[in-house]
Design a binder for these strands. Structure first.
Lengths: 215, 215
DNA sequence: AGACTGCTGTTACCGCAAGTAACGTCATGC
DNA sequence: GCATGACGTTACTTGCGGTAACAGCAGTCT
């Protein structure tokens, strides 16, 4: 494989190899969960451990590379829903539904992506707090915050408000989705509608129940 | 120490010992993070590993016992805010503030509590999906859902709606809090107000920004 | 008294996973 | 011809969760 050929398929042999290794790792992780061992992944790829370490440094590096692929894919689906031509309520519902449909269709990928960083390589003393969330959640929160800031008129302090809302909405979606995925208490459509209602202020509008002070 | 004495301090020697071990474990976990080893914990308690295993079964058992203590403490703080005599908006803000003040004051405890189950003892094949969230989040979500169902008049399907909202609101609070704790982009009071505004439907009310379709 | 029970605690080990060192092998560029 | 460097191996170290197997030391029952 010479330079000319390499130019046609846009991949150096090293990149090609890396892709193959990632695909093997993907299969194992999707089968065994996030606790898949490096030995198992190497075996699936038909090689042995040290090669994985040469390519990805350590386990965290491999997992980060894997997560980035899936995260990018999910984020582009979400961006498509967010950009659909419809009113705001419909867009929110479409985005929620896209997210929920994704985690419903590929629960193992979801599970893998939600595993927190683990590595941390503790900086100085103590351990980094406030970094528990999976990188996927951070990215979704940041992107949503940006979209809100761009499109919604929030008056003064809009920037801060939009970021808070971005992370808050993403967290709402995630927690409700995780719970729903485990218990399946209702259909996806019902869940989407309920969450959208929540964002549309129905909690504030609802009356107190007879017989006590309101929530 | 005979039975009569035991009755006065309400603890069998075994329970007393267990408490001591838990306190030692607490110190280590708060110092070293969730990756504290059983050896380290045993050393802190002045004993060796097998004793820990006799008391708690396995690492998950110890961590569960630790987590339950802290979770109970946090939940009772939250219940107090939730039951304060004020209108609904003030209660929501008080509860958000209580949660955020707690994680701000004891970030290591927070970090520890948010670590997912890990154990799983995989049932049949595959791994349990939809159980990523920390038990604390599940418990908060369920309790909040119950409170909403009790106090807010939601019409038909109120039960399901309330549980969804409970988990959704808890997730919102958690994700926003985690992000805030890491970046400190604003004061706690501002964060509380923004999140309450979100729940009060300000996203729905806000106008589109000039120059594009609305979010 | 003496045996039995049940708790405290120990040392020494197993199995397994992450990560590394040291060594071969083969194509490429000079 | 030969050095460079990627691809690959075996064999090792370290550290962790978890478990035997054993020892001392109450109290308790006969």
């Amino acid at each position: 494989m010479d330079i000319a050929h390499r130019a046609t398929d846009q991949q150096t042999p090293a990149e090609q190899r890396r892709r193959e290794l990632l695909e093997a790792a993907d299969r194992v992780v999707l089968r065994d969960g996030p606790k898949a061992s490096m030995n198992a992944i190497a075996a699936e790829a038909g090689i042995t451990k040290p090669i994985l370490y040469r390519h990805f440094g350590d386990k965290g590096g491999l997992y980060r590379a894997l997560a980035t692929r899936h995260t990018d894919a999910l984020l582009s689906s979400l961006r498509a829903s967010l950009d659909a031509p419809a009113d705001r309520r419909r867009r929110v519902e479409a985005t929620l539904d896209t997210y929920l449909a994704s985690i419903e269709a590929m629960p193992q990928v979801y599970r893998f992506l939600m595993h927190p960083a683990e590595e941390s390589h503790q900086t100085e003393q103590g351990f980094d707090v406030g970094r528990h969330s999976a990188p996927l959640l951070r990215r979704m929160g940041e992107e949503l915050g940006q979209v809100i800031a761009e499109r919604v008129d929030l008056g003064p302090a809009a920037e801060a408000q939009a970021r808070i809302w971005g992370h808050g909405i993403v967290g709402m979606m995630h927690a409700a989705g995780d719970w729903w995925l485990g218990e399946r208490p209702c259909s996806r459509a019902e869940l989407v509608k309920s969450l959208a209602d929540l964002l549309w202020g129905r909690l504030a509008e609802a009356d107190d129940r007879p017989g006590g002070p309101g929530f």
